[in-house]
Amino acid sequence: MVRFGYTMMTEQAGPRALVDDVVAAERAGFDFSVTSDHYFPWLASQGHSPYAWSVLGAAAQATTRIPLMTFVTCPTTRYHPAVVAQKAATMQLLSEGRFRLGLGSGENLNEHVVGGGWPSARHRLEKLAEAVEIIRGLFAGVEVNHQGAHFDVVNAKLWDLPDEAPPIGIAVSGELSCSLAGRLADLVIATEPNAGLLDAFDRHGGTGKPRIGQLPVCYDSDRDAAVRRAHDQFRWAFGGWPVNAELPGPAGFEGASQYVTPEDVAGKIPCGDDLGAFVDAVRPYADAGFTEIALVQVGGDRQRPFIEWAEKRLLPALREL
């Protein structure tokens, strides 16, 4: 059975609202939650970007059932992998085993703030593979000494370890990342209903592992308002990953999306309160073979109406899939 999740999108709400909303999502019956980990919003109109790991710690204490996950953290530039391992182990303890560590090769949008330039996609994936090796070693409880092509770790050891290490997910967008995920990850992450990505993941060792997708939706009883909001805050999403990973800030996404129309956005994001349209948008992910699908409600101040509607109508309909 496919499981359905709720997204704490840090780019569109402040930390207290994010925690309050995931508590409401837990009560509403969502099966899991995921959290973006950004330094900048995609667009200035989104207006937020609190520190995801503080939000996660608060969410772990405010909830009791719903799983938590980074979607995704880049463990290679803004964070060192040894620090990510410590944060993830602490989260697994705080949440009493409900945490999963989603990792990715990052976006210039968030990682450029520490300087050092922005490497090629292949170079970023090489760094990610080395980072996962370091994190796995620290999760094992051993003292890690590592001198690699990209990272040095000296006498590192985690002193507070959970009985079960957090599962590691890796985000994919092409053959190279699918190869990496199939070899090194416990689950795979994607943001498009592309069965080819899952097939590639399976070819490289991913068969039988969970696969998590994500898609934006924009619920509102006023469809025109939903379309305006989706265009205002989510038009950045249609540039494609090769573009989205490279742009350095919200101004870049403003420029790249200036010719995206409200009609373009409404053609790709279900807007309004037509239940059938929402189910139809989710169906390709289920058909492609995703075992978990996280929904992103566009609009930081429109989470509660969406959660209430999801509890009463959307989640029951989706579970018929």
Score class of each variant (00 low, 15 high):
3 R>F: 15
9 M>I: 15
11 E>P: 09
13 A>D: 13
14 G>C: 09
15 P>L: 11
17 A>Q: 14
19 V>F: 01
23 V>R: 09
23 V>K: 08
23 V>H: 11
24 A>T: 03
27 R>C: 02
30 F>N: 01
31 D>S: 04
34 V>Q: 06
46 Q>S: 00
47 G>P: 00
47 G>C: 00
47 G>R: 04
51 Y>M: 12
51 Y>I: 12
52 A>Q: 08
55 V>A: 06
55 V>F: 02
61 Q>A: 13
62 A>W: 10
66 I>H: 08
69 M>R: 14
72 V>G: 12
72 V>K: 06
72 V>A: 05
75 P>C: 11
75 P>F: 03
82 A>Y: 08
87 K>F: 13
89 A>P: 00
90 T>G: 09
92 Q>Y: 05
95 S>V: 04
97 G>N: 02
99 F>E: 10
100 R>E: 15
104 G>V: 00
106 G>A: 13
109 L>C: 05
114 V>I: 06
116 G>R: 01
116 G>A: 09
118 W>D: 09
121 A>N: 09
124 R>F: 01
124 R>N: 07
125 L>A: 05
127 K>P: 10
127 K>L: 04
130 E>L: 07
132 V>D: 03
135 I>T: 01
138 L>Q: 08
138 L>V: 08
139 F>I: 07
143 E>Q: 11
144 V>C: 02
146 H>Y: 14
147 Q>P: 07
153 V>S: 03
154 V>N: 13
156 A>D: 10
164 E>W: 14
165 A>P: 11
165 A>M: 04
167 P>L: 05
168 I>M: 01
170 I>V: 12
174 G>N: 14
179 S>D: 15
182 G>Y: 00
182 G>D: 01
187 L>S: 07
189 I>V: 06
193 P>F: 05
195 A>L: 06
200 A>Y: 04
204 H>W: 09
208 G>V: 06
210 P>G: 00
210 P>T: 01
212 I>R: 08
221 S>C: 11
222 D>E: 06
223 R>T: 10
223 R>E: 12
224 D>C: 03
224 D>R: 10
227 V>F: 14
227 V>Y: 07
228 R>H: 11
230 A>R: 02
234 F>K: 13
235 R>Y: 08
237 A>M: 12
237 A>H: 13
238 F>R: 08
241 W>R: 13
248 P>T: 03
257 S>Q: 05
258 Q>T: 11
260 V>I: 15
261 T>H: 08
265 V>F: 00
267 G>N: 07
271 C>W: 10
275 L>S: 12
277 A>Y: 12
279 V>A: 12
283 R>F: 10
284 P>Y: 02
293 I>H: 02
295 L>Y: 05
299 G>Q: 13
300 G>T: 14
307 I>L: 05
309 W>E: 12
317 A>E: 09
318 L>A: 15
